[in-house]
């Protein structure tokens, strides 16, 4: 990818984002304020982390429906460790990430080891993790208060929370993994053609396992941010998060059949969703209108990305690019 295309890569999504900000700015005189952008920044860490993980599994040609429930379970364990076992917050946070990692490893092992389709494995994990979250918390929200709110506090007068900076760091690291490392290249290769990857002497199994494990850990980290934000551990945390994460990844141009995606573009997807949510709330749009508009923007953003691709010389039909075969060199069927 040359320098010029590198810039162009992000232009379409950035333009949509700017357009949304200007639109809401014109609809409400109080939208264009630092408080609004601070609130948006502090709202997104959980979704950004989940969507980053989702992008990784989508790139290797998988999917993780359990991400929201695993986040719920990690947060529940964090709450139990803090309140019932009196562990310090840092250790509880590590435990939450560990729980996510274990759930991710379990997902990945079942998928690569027993060759069960990822949709089914993670659907099962989604139910199991949610059930476990209810069990360990006895279905009760635990109020944790100041002990966990450290990550949510604005840092040094910037109005940005520790959670937000943490999420930015993870996004940057994940993008470096994808575009700057051998493992990243293998992930793309596995996702676009697993058989060819195997024939070229690379075992796709550990690669896929790594993607699921990292996604689980991202969900665990997301749980730390979520719990910190609420000042409470909530057994329902993350319900429906998997769909928002998929939406963010798809807005960012990630293919649902693997082999294509970028964490930075996914992050743009997260920003678009969060800006839309904030703007619609501030103008007091009704619930049905919110859902209509959000759905329309998701479709429009994907179309805009497809048009940008065409302008960049990718002549594949839109559906083909969305559903997988995205590399310009591949032959049309």
């Amino acid at each position: 990818m040359g320098k010029a295309t590198w810039i162009r890569e992000y232009v379409a999504l950035a333009l949509i984002l700017v357009a949304l900000v200007l639109l809401f700015g014109s609809l409400s005189g109080r939208f264009l304020t630092a408080t609004t952008f601070g609130a948006i920044a502090n709202r997104i860490p959980t979704l950004a982390l989940a969507a980053t993980g989702m992008t990784l599994v989508l790139i290797v040609g998988g999917i993780d429906l359990s991400i929201g429930s695993v986040l719920g379970l990690s947060g529940a364990m964090l709450g139990v460790a803090l309140v019932n076992w009196h562990w310090p917050f840092a250790v509880c946070a590590a435990l939450a990430v560990g729980v996510g990692l274990i759930a991710g490893l379990a997902n990945g092992s079942l998928i690569v080891g027993l060759k069960v389709p990822p949709f089914i494995v993670t659907l099962g994990m989604m139910e199991m993790a949610r059930g476990a979250a209810y069990l360990v918390t006895n279905s009760q929200t635990k109020y944790l208060g100041a002990a966990v709110e450290g990550l949510e506090r604005p840092l040094g007068g910037t109005g940005l929370s520790g959670s937000f900076l943490l999420a930015l760091l993870v996004v940057a690291l994940a993008q470096m993994l994808l575009s700057g490392s051998v493992l990243g290249r293998w992930m793309f290769a596995t996702g676009s053609n697993e058989t060819a990857t195997r024939h070229s002497g690379i075992d796709p199994r550990p690669i896929k396992l790594t993607a699921y494990a990292l996604t689980g850990a991202a969900a665990g980290l997301g749980a730390v941010c979520y719990t910190s934000r609420l000042g409470a551990s909530d057994p329902n945390a993350g319900a429906g998060l998997e769909l928002s994460a998929i939406a963010a990844a798809v807005i960012g141009g990630t293919s649902l059949l693997g082999g294509r995606g970028s964490v930075i573009n996914t992050f743009f997807g997260v920003l678009i969703i969060a800006t839309l949510e904030a703007g619609l709330a501030q103008v007091g749009a009704s619930e049905p209108v919110k859902r209509l508009v959000t759905g329309a923007v998701i479709v429009l953003a994907v179309l805009a990305d497809a048009w940008r691709q065409r302008a960049a010389g990718n002549t594949f039909p839109l559906w083909m690019r969305l559903m997988g075969r995205t590399d310009v060199t591949a032959k049309r069927p």
């Binding site: 609004t36 609130a39 502090n42 934000r229």
Partner: peptide, 13 residues
């Protein structure tokens, strides 16, 4: 819950 927390922040904004 996270959505409702976000709504409170947007109303403050």
């Amino acid at each position: 819950l996270a959505e409702q927390v976000g709504l409170v922040e947007q109303m403050v904004a």
